[in-house]
Simulated scan of single mutants.
Amino acid sequence: METVRVFFCAAALALSAANAKAQILIGQSADMSGPVAASVKETILGSQLVIDHVNAQGGIHGEKIEVIRLDDGLDPKRSAENSRVLIEEKKVVALLLNRGTPNALAVIPLLDKSGTPLIGPSTGAMSLHKPLQKHVFNVRSTYQREAEKAVQHLHTVGMQRIAVVQADDSFGKDAMEGAMKGFDKAGLKPVVLALADRNKPDYAAIVPKLAAANAQAVLWIGSGTAVTEGVKALRATGSAAQVITLSNNAASGFIKELGSASGGVVVMQVLPSERGLAHPLVKEASDLAKAKGDIELSPALLEGFVATKVMVEALRRAGPKPTRAKLLAVLNDLRYDPGGGLEVSYSPQDHSGIDYVDLSIISGGRFKR
């Protein structure tokens, strides 16, 4: 198991060992080597911008934040074991930005047993919203809302023959519920519904079905390379079908993996445009990124940025030497604007966070709205 420890210390402060205070330990289990590693790395970059900035100002109540990150390769079993190590052995105060729907679900028993909050899971699974998961605090909107809006968009622009490729896992089933709401409202049914293995889809079986159905558009519900390789296979048949996918693929790495097949692909978004520098949140992220050097903003980076801002604010309000119980109490009554009116609101009955959905189209190697 590969362990990546990230320490964020500001050289300008040059604190001596004698003056150094105990660190606030945060844990993360995510895919750093598998099919969504490119997106995860961008999310981590956004998270690091916040933590590095906070630590450079002396930390929270004089304590620096240390993030312990473990690679799970998008395997739910590894996610559960990583989280056990982080919670029981490393004694982290909270988990942050764990990636993947099955992965997050696998960790919930550990959260409930230990009273550890999971902040900003990098998934829009409805199962993390309803029924209420008392230790999970979502920051982004749900996949169901994204998928519903995706189908509505396709119908609005005149598409009637819409196919769906669905990852055959809890993430795919969850998103498909939202897609079917969109189909029902449009008075349509999918011309093809192809189930795909989460990590190794059978493109030789899937793509001919899409071509034979003469699909005008394909809603591709999957992650990372499972989608990019599928789109390439579809384009290799000569199909010009509009491809639309969900925000879990809203990363610069996704565009790079698509290569020449990226043009015209629509990707759902759950935060304002990373190019909209007039937005206070985006401006803040851009300024911190520029100070670090050549770091390009992306939707995935912004997701990590916002989730970590929420965590930092909760830690501040929890007071010196925050415990899991103190942090949980603060989160359950948190009202916080991370920038530009994107209010995060939690209560003991609702841990939904920000409710925002938009879409973008890839053009010239960038997301455009």
Rank of each mutant, 00 (worst) to 15 (best):
P320A: 06
R317F: 00
M176A: 09
L132Q: 09
A11G: 13
S239V: 04
L342T: 01
A18T: 12
F8A: 08
L195A: 08
I206M: 11
L359F: 12
A12Y: 08
K181Q: 08
S273H: 01
A106F: 12
A240S: 14
D169Q: 13
L110M: 06
R235C: 00
L13Y: 01
V136Q: 00
S16I: 03
L154V: 13
D355W: 02
F137E: 05
N248H: 14
Q28P: 01
A94I: 03
A300N: 10
A318G: 11
A291C: 08
K256T: 14
D169E: 14
M268W: 14
L74D: 13
S47G: 12
M159D: 05
H153M: 04
A175N: 11
A14C: 06
V85I: 15
G230I: 02
A179W: 15
A147M: 09
A20K: 09
Q57G: 11
S223P: 00
A186L: 06
L301P: 05
H351V: 07
L334Y: 00
V243I: 11
I244V: 14
E88T: 08
P109A: 04
L70V: 05
Y336A: 03
V192H: 02
L96M: 11
S298C: 10
I87V: 13
L49M: 14
S16Q: 06
G187H: 15
K77A: 15
G58W: 04
E343P: 00
A56E: 14
A179E: 13
L132M: 10
F137N: 03
K113N: 03
L188S: 06
S298F: 11
S114F: 05
G353R: 02
N19W: 04
A204L: 12
T245P: 07
V165P: 11
S352K: 13
A125L: 07
K232R: 13
D355T: 09
F367Y: 12
G158K: 06
C9W: 14
P338C: 15
A261C: 05
G120L: 05
T228Q: 08
P208L: 02
Y336R: 08
G34A: 11
Y143C: 10
G341F: 07
T123G: 03
G120W: 03
V267I: 09
M176D: 10
F305G: 07
A285K: 07
Y356G: 05
A11D: 15
G222P: 03
V267D: 06
L96Y: 11
G339L: 00
D197Y: 09
H351G: 10
S170T: 15
H279N: 15
D71I: 02
A125Q: 04
N82C: 07
V192P: 02
D358K: 09
A329N: 03
P272D: 00
V136F: 01
H279F: 06
A250P: 15
F171Y: 10
P338A: 13
P322Q: 11
I108H: 01
T228R: 09
V54M: 06
Q28S: 05
A17T: 05
K185E: 10
V310N: 03
S273Y: 00
P320R: 08
S273R: 01
L331R: 07
F171I: 07
F305Q: 10
M176G: 07
A240L: 13
A125I: 09
L13I: 05
V67C: 03
A215D: 00
G27W: 08
